[in-house]
Each structure stands twice: as structure tokens, then as C-alpha cells.
Design a protein around this nucleic acid. Structure first.
Length: 222
DNA sequence: GGCTGATCATAG
DNA sequence: CTATGATCAGCC
């Protein structure tokens, strides 16, 4: 079943709100989709599933998206206290070509300008099919949040541009962190080391810490 | 390999 | 119990 792309922000929000309170299987049944028993080999399934039922064209050609609405959709697994169980992937971290890139022109800022968060019950003791979909939250970073994100992004990006990959680890950054993002630890991409020499190194991604996303959820739950 | 979507697994 | 580092899948 193909679902049309929402024509307006209101239409997208209406659809998203309609899903809240239903279980994964209730929605999946309505769209004739089968639900995996676990996510071990389907780690992106929930995200793709929600994209699909909201009318984003997941997979194949990426022609249709919410790009016209300037909305980034993120599902986020939450516990009983409505707190995130996982960090949130934002984007791959460019390890080259960062000269001249600023926070304002960064992928991270671009993606986080407007996010539709879809909290989903994520407790591992609840079968995937029985997990409930929460209330969607349309979020734009506050001034304070932007300042903190910018500070972290600049600190992390500086380490990349200086080629100090031996210093990079997930403990750096107040709300944003850099962590591996590849098929496995043998994955490689290009970067410049501290002496300016082209090297092969582990691909990295920007992730939002749970404290940051947890705050967004807490502020917006009524 | 790069990019999208993320969660898994275990050290501490 | 939590966060870091590792990993999974599909498309281009």
C-alpha cells in the first residue's frame, strides 16, 4: 500500500497524532505489514515503518520525503518514564571538506532545525508488536539548545579538522557526541591526520545524548 | 563507500 | 544500570 506524501504540516501532524495510542501491530495490520519479532536484524525497522505510514517514501528512491515541509522525522524509543532508551543518530560526520563549514551551514544544524519526534515504547521486555506509539512532538531548538549544540559541534568539528582522531571518543560534548557509524569497526573512510596526510579511518556519526532528547520529551509531554 | 534508518551488547 | 563502542539492513 502506497501512502501519499502529506501536503502540509497540518496534514502530517494530523496523521502523526492519529497514530498515538495505538500499538505497532494495530497500525501494521491496517497497512498489511508484518512486524519482526525482534530488532536484532531489523534495527531501523520502527523508523522505516513510521516513515512509511506517515507517507514518507522510505527506501527505494528518496524522491519523496518531508523535505518540502522541512521536517526531519525521528522515532525515539522510550521507557516507562518517557525517557529515551537510546541516543539519537543525527548525521554522518564529514571528516574532510570541513574548511569553511560553520555551524550555520552544517548538516547537524540543518537536520535539527525542525524535528517531528515520535516516541515509541521501547522496553525490551515488550514484544515489538505490542509497543505503543506515543504523542508526536514537533520541536525546534530553543536559543539555549542551539547555543549548546553549536558549542559541541564546534568542539567536535575542530578535533576532526585538526585530525586528532586518537582524541575523539563519545565522552566529548555536552549534548552532542561523536561515535562510530559504519558496518563494523573495520569500516573505513577518508580523513586527514594531524600532519595533513590522507588516511583511512573509522567513519563517525553525530549523536544526541539521551539527556538532551529526554529534556525535549519531558517539556512537551502534557 | 556514503547515507538513510537505528539498536545491540557488554564493559565498567 | 548506563553509555560507549560495535553492529545490522537496504538503497544508491
Amino acid at each position: 500500500m502506497v501512502i501519499s506524501v502529506p501536503n502540509s504540516l497540518n496534514e502530517l501532524l494530523t496523521r502523526a497524532n492519529y497514530l498515538s495510542g495505538y500499538s505497532i501491530s494495530t497500525v501494521a495490520d491496517a497497512f498489511n505489514l508484518s512486524v519482526p519479532a525482534d530488532l536484532k536484524r531489523h534495527k531501523g525497522w520502527i523508523g522505516n515503518f513510521i516513515e512509511h505510514v506517515l507517507g514518507a517514501d522510505a527506501g527505494s528512491k528518496a524522491i519523496q520525503d518531508f523535505t518540502e515541509l522541512k521536517i526531519e522525522l525521528k522515532t525515539i524509543p522510550v521507557n516507562d518514564k518517557y525517557f529515551p532508551l537510546e541516543t539519537t543518530f543525527v548525521s554522518l560526520a564529514p571528516l574532510t571538506g570541513n574548511v569553511g563549514v560553520t555551524w550555520d551551514t552544517s548538516h547537524v544544524r540543518n537536520k535539527l532545525q525542525r524535528v517531528l519526534w515520535m516516541p515509541i515504547q521501547g522496553n525490551r521486555d515488550i514484544p515489538i508488536k505490542d509497543r505503543l506509539i506515543g504523542k508526536p512532538i514537533l520541536w525546534e531548538p530553543s536559543l539555549q539548545e542551539s547555543i549548546t549544540l553549536k558549542k559541541d559541534w564546534e568542539e567536535l568539528t575542530e578535533l576532526i579538522t585538526l585530525g586528532q582522531f586518537d582524541k575523539i571518543n563519545a565522552a566529548i560534548g555536552e549534548v552532542l557526541q561523536l561515535r562510530p557509524k559504519g558496518a563494523n569497526r573495520k569500516s573505513r573512510t577518508h580523513a586527514y591526520d594531524s600532519s595533513g596526510k590522507l588516511i583511512n579511518t573509522l567513519p563517525l556519526g553525530f549523536y544526541l545524548r539521551t539527556g538532551f532528547t529526554g529534556n525535549i520529551l519531558q517539556k512537551n509531554k502534557m
